[in-house]
């Protein structure tokens, strides 16, 4: 499974301060550590970034790619910031991933960027009117996103469908809805649609010592059901990812498989 390292998020105090001061040190240290732990794409979450978003995303992409040979997942609702990031992204190690479009008309232009810059894009299966009730509703939204993507000229192979993981502490039913949605999304196309989740949202609001446990077991169940990628903490789920890849036959077993 592709792990998209989640640690470069504006929500984290240390990262936020580094972003404000344009201090490369902490950003590059975190990016490098995630790479070493097995992240093969790095998420750059700069929040809504209404002021100076373009400059910030541009700085994030180049700062990350100075030290890590990986593509970047551009994570913001600011259209112009995404475009600025795409312009400087080095595609040598893989194509970027836009995070994200959805069924909300305000997010449609993200598809335009994906087509224009030959980028991959996350399709979050939510609309303007609140959260999807179950797996079926998520699939209906996914189908709309896919149809729209084709109108914009984005190949379906470039879309990662995201069923939106919700907090287990407040929305327990959705844990299973999301697992079913991951399974059903794949059936929407041949070859199967790619899928992604924001994994740690499952344990958001839970006690600190419980969070990694929830994240790991949930990752295992999602992977078993065919999940392609997760925005997650590679330190936490690297072992799960490698082990499930071995159990499901995606990687050949060797005694040292965890060290690879």
């Amino acid at each position: 499974m592709l792990i998209i390292g989640e640690k470069l998020s504006i929500i984290a105090k240390r990262v936020r301060e580094a972003m404000l001061k344009k201090d490369k040190g902490p950003i590059q240290e975190i990016a490098k550590r995630q790479w070493d732990e097995g992240s093969r794409m790095i998420d750059a979450n700069i929040g809504p970034a209404e002021d100076g978003g373009e400059e910030l995303m541009e700085w994030m992409v180049t700062t990350i790619q100075e030290v890590v040979s990986a593509p970047v997942c551009l994570d913001t609702t600011n259209y112009k910031a995404i475009e600025a990031g795409l312009k400087v992204h080095n595609n040598e190690w893989g194509r970027p991933l836009i995070n994200s479009t959805s069924n909300d008309p305000e997010r449609f232009p993200m598809l335009e960027l994906a087509a224009k810059y030959n980028s991959q894009i996350i399709g979050l299966t939510v609309g303007k009117g609140g959260l999807p009730a179950d797996a079926e509703e998520r699939c209906a939204i996914a189908a709309e996103i896919m149809a729209r993507a084709m109108e914009y000229g984005v190949p379906l192979e470039d879309i990662y469908l995201d069923p939106l993981v919700l907090q287990i502490a407040t929305s327990q039913d959705h844990a299973m809805h999301v697992i079913r949605a991951i399974k059903m999304f794949q059936e929407l196309n041949d070859p199967p649609m790619k899928t992604v989740v924001g994994l740690s949202n499952i344990s958001n609001g839970c006690p600190k010592h419980v969070r990694p446990i929830l994240n790991k077991y949930y990752a295992a169940l999602l992977m078993y059901n065919g999940l392609t990628a997760a925005i997650a903490d590679s330190h936490e789920i690297g072992e799960v990812s490698k082990t499930i890849d071995v159990i499901t036959g995606k990687t050949l077993y060797a005694h040292s498989y965890l060290e690879m």
């Binding site: 050949l252 077993y253 060797a254 005694h255 040292s256 060290e259």
Partner: peptide
């Protein structure tokens, strides 16, 4: 043994 073959290559790489 394909698994041991992979393992030996890993050990040599390490």
């Amino acid at each position: 043994d394909i698994n041991l073959s992979k393992q030996l290559n890993i050990l040599i790489g390490q």
